[in-house]
């Protein structure tokens, strides 16, 4: 068996085929990728290109048909709080309050390592990070979509994950709320130095937030088309970047890939 050698997160020759025989559909073919500690990585591609499947494989929610995922040299077999996921539709439990949604994760992950009072403080601290302490007694049904996603992010952060996996976290939000949350995620990333993998289909979001952009080809049998390093200094300010040459070049590169080299497949 192969072992990861020193890299933080290593995705090695991952293939995924759903189904067998005549109905089999190959989603991912030979995807390999190394992610450094503290890196912010965006995965971009057209709908149906298998980027969510790739994220689910890293999360352990889906099993790869071939290939391996290593985190700190240990192979990933199953989901766990060290790879916390922020789901696209927030996936908060509607019968729990905002506080209890985060507390459930904290209680589960830190049981035995923290006292009840410490777990309470840690829960509040993580809700504070996303500015949601004003609504801790509310249920998810009583807060806006943007707030729900903040709580989802807070829940994931509260697990102190080694890798934070964001599955189109801002996809269902309006443009202004999305911009707000992007700022907050950038700030949290700057403060805590999390390793983040984010799925997105928004070119500006990918360039603004990430250190590196993985461009996926269209399915079936999607693979990594190109890698692009965004060499913009941090902290980044979206208004300053509008006219920034590096920003414009990065944006152009991703757009060109999406619209020229990997043309949209109608069936996808």
């Amino acid at each position: 068996m192969n072992t990861g050698n020193g890299e933080y997160l290593r995705i090695e020759h991952v293939c995924k085929t759903f189904g067998t025989g005549a109905t089999a559909s190959e989603v991912l073919r030979d995807v390999s990728l190394d992610v450094a500690k503290g890196e912010y990585l965006a995965i971009i591609g057209h709908s149906g290109c298998g980027k969510s499947t790739l994220l689910n494989i890293v999360a352990g929610l889906t099993e790869a048909t071939q290939g391996y995922v290593f985190l700190e040299g240990r192979e990933v077999h199953q989901p766990g709080p060290d790879r916390a996921v922020v789901f696209q539709n927030h996936s908060l439990l509607p019968w729990l309050t905002v506080y209890d949604n985060v507390r459930l994760a904290v209680d589960k992950v830190f049981a035995g390592r923290m006292s009840s009072a410490e777990r309470h403080d840690w829960t509040l601290k993580n809700l504070e990070l996303v500015h949601m302490t004003h609504a801790i007694r509310k249920r998810p049904g009583e807060i806006s979509g943007g707030m729900k996603q903040r709580v989802g992010i807070s829940r994931a952060l509260a697990m102190s994950p080694k890798v934070l996996l964001l599955d189109e976290p801002f996809g269902a939000l309006d443009a202004l709320t999305r911009a707000h949350l992007q700022e907050e995620v950038m700030k949290i990333h700057a403060d805590l130095g999390n390793t983040v993998i984010m799925i997105t289909h928004d070119v500006d979001e990918a360039v603004l937030l990430s250190d590196r952009i993985v461009m996926m080809t269209n399915g079936p049998a999607a693979h990594i088309g190109e890698l692009h390093t965004v060499s913009l200094p941090r902290p980044r300010n979206r208004l300053d970047l509008i006219a920034d040459a590096t920003y414009i070049a990065s944006r152009a590169k991703v757009l060109e890939f999406l619209h020229k080299k990997s043309h949209y497949v109608e069936a996808a």
Partner: peptide
């Protein structure tokens, strides 16, 4: 999925 990530 939430329950699996939390390992309930």
């Amino acid at each position: 999925n939430v329950s699996r990530v939390l390992r309930l």
